[in-house]
């Protein structure tokens, strides 16, 4: 649940927020994303984090951080309190997937979700070779991984469809953080290591 690794999705997210926006970052780690959004985009930011060490680091970074377990929902946050609610590289660690997505769009106008795409070709090749994938965007061994949900870009889009969530923008990145440009969705699913989505409520 930290932002210590690749920051490619940060660039995408920074492009989607406006100065003065209120941003809530769920699983904010040491607050690196918020720090960056505050400094470069002039937003107001709050983070939610469960780990003691990250809470301490975020406070040290001068970030507003609320120690809380995402699995318990976002009950401390009022409806429509934020312009953007960010869940960066964390959705795959949350058990209650639909609940957290619904909560994000209750407290925020838009949800920004990034996650590692398990259908990325290198991940698939790894499985075909008989081993669970370990990569820049999946930096854990199977036995120490915080990830509890394993899904692909197309799986996620099917869930959004099912929940009636509108996908406003999508950015798919390869392992080096470069955008995957392809018009065929199945190709994108194959070529993308990290997916970043901008969601709004059902209309």
């Amino acid at each position: 649940m930290t932002h210590t690794l690749g920051r490619a999705d940060f660039d995408v997210i920074a492009g989607w927020v406006e100065p003065g926006h209120r941003v809530l970052d769920l699983g904010c780690g040491d607050g690196a994303l918020l720090r960056r959004l505050i400094e470069t985009r002039g937003v107001q930011g709050w983070g939610v984090e469960i780990e003691d060490a990250n809470v301490l680091a975020a406070i040290r970074n001068g970030i507003n951080v609320i120690q809380s377990n995402l699995e318990n929902g976002l009950g401390d946050f009022a409806d429509d309190a934020f312009d953007h609610v960010v869940l960066s590289r964390t959705l795959q660690t949350v058990r209650h997937t639909e609940d957290i997505l619904r909560e994000m769009l209750r407290v925020g106008r838009e949800a920004v979700v990034s996650f590692p795409n398990f259908a990325y070709w290198k991940n698939l090749r790894s499985v075909l070779d008989g081993r669970m994938p370990v990569s820049e965007d999946l930096p854990y061994q199977w036995y120490d991984s915080p990830n509890v949900r394993f899904f692909t870009l197309l799986d996620f889009e099917a869930l959004c469809e099912q929940m009636g969530l509108a996908i406003r923008e999508r950015s798919v990145l390869d392992e080096h953080g470069n955008p995957v440009e392809n018009t065929d969705n199945r190709e994108v699913n194959f070529l993308g290591s990290l997916a970043v989505y901008r969601l709004t409520r059902p209309r």
Partner: peptide, 10 residues
């Protein structure tokens, strides 16, 4: 939070 105030909670 409801007032958008700066707050941290541990």
């Amino acid at each position: 939070l409801a007032n958008g105030r700066d707050v941290s909670y541990a």
